[in-house]
Simulated scan of single mutants.
Amino acid sequence: MMGLTHPGQPLRNHTKSSSTSRLKHCHRTVTSSDNAPTNYRMYIAYLLILLILTPRVNSSWWYIGALGAHVICDNIPGLVTRQRQLCQKHPDIMQAIGEGAKEWIRECQHQFRHHRWNCSTLDRDHTVFGRVMLRSSREAAFVYAISYAGMVYAITRACSQGELKSCSCDPKKRGRSKDKKGEFDWGGCSDNIDFGIEFAKDFVDFKERRVRDARALMNLHNNRCGRMAVKRFMKLECKCHGVSGSCTLRTCWRAMSDFRKTGDYLRRKYNGAIQVTMNQDGTSFTVANQDFRKPTKKDLVYFENSPDYCVMDKYAGSLGTAGRVCDKVSRGTDGCEVMCCGRGYDTTRVTRTTKCECKFHWCCAVRCKECEETVDVHTCKAPKRAEWLDQT
């Protein structure tokens, strides 16, 4: 999937979906047969079976990232008519969204690299994350929020870099303004985040608004958290003008912060996510536990408790933690006791080559020696077969 590795899982291959291969097989059957009507009916039958067996994850637009520069709108499953129209009308924006998808998935994997669920993706699977997103859990809440944030971030950045035909720098940042330091002139290229937000609303939220069930309301709420997170970290950057840099005059522009800040913020929101239920008229949420506060627009919300992610569970979409690297001495989520779910761990002694004794040489190079060190690597044991069968 998108050339990404699955952090923390170097010793295990992920389960791959066979949906693509089945579809390709159907296509070969239709094109290579002399009996077109019969094989066309067979193709339709296979396609219906494929659609029934494929997990239903609404945000199939995540798959745009796997297509790279060759985004073909008709090849993205699950898009509704409005989304497909926008895709066909704005191929340059779709390419920016695809590049952004790689970035927010990497950020998701960074944030959960030391946890049982580590935001793993599935190769060649249009759902990207598999069945784990079917559950209305706090993990799904986080993914919807950070994916939406990633889309807004990618589109806004592409606008400022002049890569898109339909937008450029923020046109509202013109003339003079002032802040705590005094007056300044708007100049440079302010990031046009309003365009990024509006396009994301039109493209992503449109499908959720058509459904209007409990999961759609949850997704819309967490989408809002994602776009608010990007806007939260907009900053004012300025350049001073004057004699010897005296800053008697300033030219300023609005710019997005590094996406890591958004990832860190949403991760904190994940930790404090609030479990909710639908109210009686099905239009909003109420807290599942009355002892907790009501969620605000900035809080992530979820309906269902998460699985423990300890063992492979195809129904829940859990890949398990067998083979995951853990820290023997840590008492946190990356510790072997927690990561391995009490199953124990194997220890392997490995030799690593690292750079050492680095020295700076004028001007301007850093030269290092290569040193070898022997370390112990601890990996989680697989569950006993009887225990594994109980979960699959």
Rank of each mutant, 00 (worst) to 15 (best):
P91S: 09
M234S: 11
M1A: 15
S306N: 13
L266W: 03
V204Y: 00
G8D: 01
I105P: 00
T351C: 06
R157H: 13
Q280D: 10
M278P: 00
N35Q: 10
T38D: 12
Y315E: 05
P295I: 02
C341W: 07
S190N: 04
S318E: 03
D308S: 07
Q95M: 13
I64C: 03
V377D: 00
V204Q: 00
S18C: 08
D281C: 04
H361V: 15
Q109R: 02
E337F: 11
L67R: 01
Y315A: 04
D191T: 07
C247L: 11
A382S: 12
M228V: 07
A316N: 06
R254C: 07
N219D: 14
E372H: 12
K384A: 11
R267P: 05
W61N: 10
W186G: 01
T251Y: 03
S19N: 09
R385V: 14
M42E: 11
L50M: 10
V57A: 02
H126G: 03
Q9T: 15
S120E: 15
T283W: 15
R22Q: 08
R267A: 08
E372S: 11
C336K: 01
G130T: 01
E357C: 11
A273L: 01
C326E: 04
G272P: 04
K172R: 09
T348K: 12
T5V: 13
R385F: 10
M339E: 06
G3A: 14
K355S: 12
R106T: 15
D205F: 03
N219W: 00
Y265K: 03
V287H: 01
D185V: 10
E183R: 12
G245L: 05
G272M: 05
Y345A: 08
G100Q: 01
D376C: 04
G187N: 03
K298H: 11
S318W: 06
G196L: 07
L86C: 07
A288K: 13
Q9N: 14
Y153S: 02
A229S: 13
K297S: 09
G272I: 03
C326N: 07
I146E: 01
T54D: 07
R135K: 14
N35K: 12
V132L: 11
G226E: 01
D334S: 10
P10T: 08
K355A: 11
A154R: 00
E198C: 06
Y345R: 06
H241Y: 12
T348V: 08
G130Y: 01
R254Q: 13
Y46F: 08
T347G: 05
K207R: 09
D264R: 13
D170M: 02
E163N: 12
N222K: 02
R268T: 10
H110D: 15
G242K: 07
G242T: 08
D376E: 10
V30M: 12
C368L: 12
A149W: 04
A382E: 09
P307E: 02
K89S: 11
G100K: 00
P171T: 07
Y302C: 06
L50W: 06
Y148L: 04
L217N: 04
M2G: 15
I76S: 05
V366K: 11
A36T: 13
V128H: 00
T31C: 13
L249P: 00
H126K: 05
T121F: 01
V377A: 04
C159Q: 00
C356T: 14
